[in-house]
Amino acid sequence: MEFLLNPYYMQLITFIIINAILGISIYLTLSTGQLSLGNAGFMSVGAYTSALLTLKAGVPLYAAVPLGGAAACLLAAIIGIPTTRLRGIYLAIATLGFGEVVRVIILNLKITNGALGLSSIPSMGVMLSKGIAAFGLAGGIGGISVRQLGSIAVILILALILGFLIFFALRLSSSRLGRAFAAIKADEHAAEVSGIDTRYYKLLAFFMGAFVAGIAGGLAAHITFYIGPKDFAYHRAVEILLFAVLGGSDVVWGPILGAVLLTVLPEVLRFATEYREMIYGAILVLMMAFRPQGLISESTLALWRTKLTRQPKIAGQDKVTRRTTP
């Protein structure tokens, strides 16, 4: 218990959850087979909108974060309507360009404070611990300080959001909408011929991804006190993509596992000091060599399901076939 209450691990958990939310955002766009690298851009829009609203306009946190998501969504409409007509690598390049454009605009706007970034952003943890203190628990409970309680509350809120998003993504995959997404991913032409309005569904997936990325950005801004344009550069876009590449993009658990591993790994490797980056790189290469499709795929899930339920493979196969038929 003491181990988990260490602020170092609690901070790490918040980063893991934020990254997992970003993992879901890329999963949502990837579920229609669209490779979008604009998520870092949407994240920055969410982060800056939310931070500016709280800093300059005094909007409360709980309203600012969703508004950040909405702003990202709005921008997704502007960029998405022309670009979702693009396919594969062309979409990737267009969205990558979009992310860079957003970054350059942020660099040159006065309100965003250019390269200096925004500092002393109201922190969720500080706010919550103040709330808890006002609630009459200023001394903490059972040896847990108010600050720790604040951090626990932050983790709980983030976990709730993540839990809701996972639930949403799971329900989505077995809904009419999710089936349409899967059909488009499998074969866009076939989907179109069978009467699915591919443009509409692709745009919808793009919007959902942008919204979730915007929310993640808003949350990230209120966890770290400071945001600057550097945080949302090209490497961020690639990092988000890595969650999906490493974890697998077939099922929502894939990007989440990817996010967890890629956040924990650099910290676990701290003991290696100078060799940290090398080992990190080597692990990524090895993982890609062993599992180019990502760590978790449909068949992995089915395999574990049969294992856990100890039923012969019929049950597993049944699930596999049911899932892949749109």
Binding site: P7, Y8, Q11, L12, F15, T224, Y226, G228, D231, P266, E267, R270
Partner: peptide, 10 residues
């Protein structure tokens, strides 16, 4: 910055 935060916390 995230790395720096993790580093000081550690």
């Amino acid at each position: 910055k995230n790395e720096a935060i993790n580093a000081v916390n550690k």
